[in-house]
């Protein structure tokens, strides 16, 4: 336990020192505030519209951004140590490979959680203070859920980055693969699903299709954030499939948690087999 924290605190202080935490928080805050007030500009309105609309826009943006940030933060976690010669050194210390991995995860995970809390939290605070007669209860609930799920989404991609980082021997290949993972889950998956939908012309089992959404953590994340609002007309594209899913919100959360746990276990399996 102490060893895990020792690794985590270094990652955390690295995150503070190279201003990652500050930069991500600032980015989140600016985006959230910008979307809250300018999000409706396309439809000719200016100013805050509604909480569901704000969360919907924020969630679609965060689906792109959060995985990218998480992958950037963690892609060199193992292979970077190896290139600096410190991985071999660390492994001669009273420190297990699992502890090293978990320490990195705790450190990076805290950075992401803090950045989400600070960045989006500031935006929520701004809305609460500046917008007249906003439903405070709904605001806290919707933003709380949004921040928690964003953090979990980030953790999913941290775990995936550790799998890559434990597997490859060069930092550049880890970076390339990380981009590939981002591309696959954030862009390609939904397109492929839509293509399947169109090409099968309805012959593809309509009961099975919504379940496929669960295979993509980014879609699970969006399903979580789009559900539960009175008017759910915000769901578009493949998200409309989510309405057919016969499972409750808790199952989506569980699914997201599984998406954190399974890649993390996979990363552990891979790092145990990494030659020194």
């Amino acid at each position: 336990m102490t060893q895990i924290w020792n690794i985590a605190r270094k990652e955390l202080s690295d995150g503070l020192r190279n201003r990652w935490l500050l930069a991500i928080s600032l980015l989140f805050a600016v985006l959230a505030v910008g979307i809250a007030w300018l999000g409706a500009a396309a439809s000719g309105q200016l100013g805050f519209t509604s909480i569901p609309a704000t969360i919907a826009s924020l969630a679609s943006l965060a689906t792109f951004l959060v995985p990218l940030i998480a992958l950037l933060l963690a892609y060199d976690a193992v292979v970077g140590e190896d290139e600096g010669g410190t991985l071999m050194l660390l492994l001669t210390y009273p420190l297990g490979r699992g502890q090293l991995l978990l320490g990195k995860f705790v450190g990076h995970g805290l950075i992401l959680a803090l950045a989400t809390l600070i960045g989006f939290g500031c935006a929520a605070l701004a809305i609460a203070v500046l917008v007249k007669d906003v439903e405070l209860g709904l605001l806290v609930w919707a933003f709380g859920r949004f921040m928690l799920s964003s953090t979990l989404l980030g953790w999913v991609f941290l775990a995936m980055a550790y799998v890559l980082s434990s597997k490859v021997t060069e930092k550049s290949s880890a970076a390339g693969l990380a981009l590939g993972v981002w591309f696959a889950f954030v862009l390609v998956f939904d397109l492929a699903l839509l293509a399947l939908l169109v090409l099968s012309q309805g012959k593809f089992s309509p009961d099975l299709l919504p379940w496929l959404l669960l295979l993509n953590p980014a879609d699970v994340y969006r399903l979580i954030n789009l559900s539960g609002f009175a008017d759910s007309g915000t769901a578009a594209g493949v998200m409309a499939l989510g309405g057919d899913l016969p499972i409750g919100g808790w199952w989506l959360w569980l699914c997201l948690l599984l998406w954190v746990g399974v890649p993390l276990l996979l990363a552990y399996w891979v790092i145990l087999r990494r030659p020194t």
Binding site: K10, D14, R17, N18, G84, G85, T86, M88, L89
Partner: peptide
């Protein structure tokens, strides 16, 4: 003491 170790640059 490893042969090649660059440690953490930052």
């Amino acid at each position: 003491l490893p042969e090649n170790v660059t440690f953490y640059a930052q």
